[in-house]
């Protein structure tokens, strides 16, 4: 019996176990992640779409498992993206958005840098 009770307890934690202290911590963590990034939801959505469209030029993504979120840890906000790859696209010719810069004659800085 106790094992079953234990299991039930774990699956459906009773509300009493949520102290007001737990609750306030959780609420603060959520609100501060928003406060700290200061990135409005529509901007985040646009960012997500743009990243996906670029990545999709190279690989086929598994749209089911996509994850995209902002996380805050020790005052540093990170963009966490998990983009499961279904297969690599070998066939597509990737059109680079900016044309290759033509090396200019007489421009020594390019050769210097090499």
């Amino acid at each position: 019996m106790t094992i079953i009770n234990d299991l039930l307890e774990r699956l459906f934690p009773r509300n009493e176990s949520h102290t007001s202290r737990d609750e306030v911590k959780l609420r603060l963590q959520q609100i501060l992640a928003q406060d700290r990034t200061d990135l409005p939801p529509d901007k985040l959505e646009a960012l997500r779409n743009e990243i996906l469209s670029i990545v999709s030029q190279y690989v086929e993504l598994d749209s089911e498992g996509l994850q995209f979120s902002l996380q805050c840890n020790q005052r540093v906000t990170s963009l966490i993206a998990n983009l499961p790859i279904r297969r690599v696209k070998h066939d597509t010719i990737v059109s680079s958005p900016t044309p290759e810069p033509q090396p200019q004659l007489g421009n020594t800085s390019i050769t210097d840098a090499l």
Binding site: T19, S20, R21, D22, V24, K25
Partner: peptide, 9 residues
């Protein structure tokens, strides 16, 4: 009594 955040929290 778990009714206030601790220093660590």
């Amino acid at each position: 009594a778990n009714d206030m955040m601790s220093v660590e929290d």
